[in-house]
Amino acid sequence: MRLLLTSATSEFGRTVADLLSGDHEMVLTDQTRHAEGHPDVVACDLGDDDSTDRLVAGIDAIVHIGHGGHFSSASDLLDVNTRCTYNLLTAVRNAGINRVVNLSTLRLLDDYPEHLTVTENWRPTPGVEPVILSAHLNEYVCREFGREGGIKIANLRLGFPLVAGNTAAAAASGESAALAGDDLLTAINAALTADLGVNAQSTDAPHPVSFRTVHVQSPFENGRFLLKGAASILGLWEGQGVA
């Protein structure tokens, strides 16, 4: 697929780009101030002008970094994660691009004690720290676009920390919510094509949902977060991980 990746010059963005580049044709983009000095990156401030429309033209799907990109001031983080996400999704919807994978964070649920069986049905408990608050607001924007339809948005809440390598490396890190790079790639690839399921309440004629949150950490024993959503929605790691 021809994928557009946002915040591509951030450390996390570079990691995601490297992971995906073996399977996909990558178009990298970042805000103008971050794109300088990166000739392989398309500079775009994700404004409400036609530059954002041009950015998404010819793209099959978007991988949007909603947490873990560039660190900056509170005002800037809030701006990028609300207004810029809004502008991007508006352009995506207008262009008829059907799939967005939003990369969020399981830190939105970090307040819950580790012994609780936290799933996608538990309410996020973000704090007011700008990095976390802005990630929460970024999900909010995505959710409202999903509610209206026209785009399918897979909101992946990623485990932490991100560990290079495979599941065994994540397990060996000693971090209960760790996510291995190999598992992140597996999850993004699944999220790019999975149908995201159907409305569970609509039994006669189930219709596809257009926004779905899925928790993604590496599937090792005694992991912190349940992976039932990854199994049922993305078809991954059935029976693996905790519980």
Binding site: L78, T82, Y86, G127, L133, L137, V141, E144
Partner: peptide, 18 residues
């Protein structure tokens, strides 16, 4: 929803709530 006025005010409200 995504109507600009409603959406931006709702985000502000969510910030307040948090």
């Amino acid at each position: 929803g995504t109507r600009l006025y409603a959406h931006t005010k709702a985000l502000g409200q969510e910030i307040d709530r948090v």
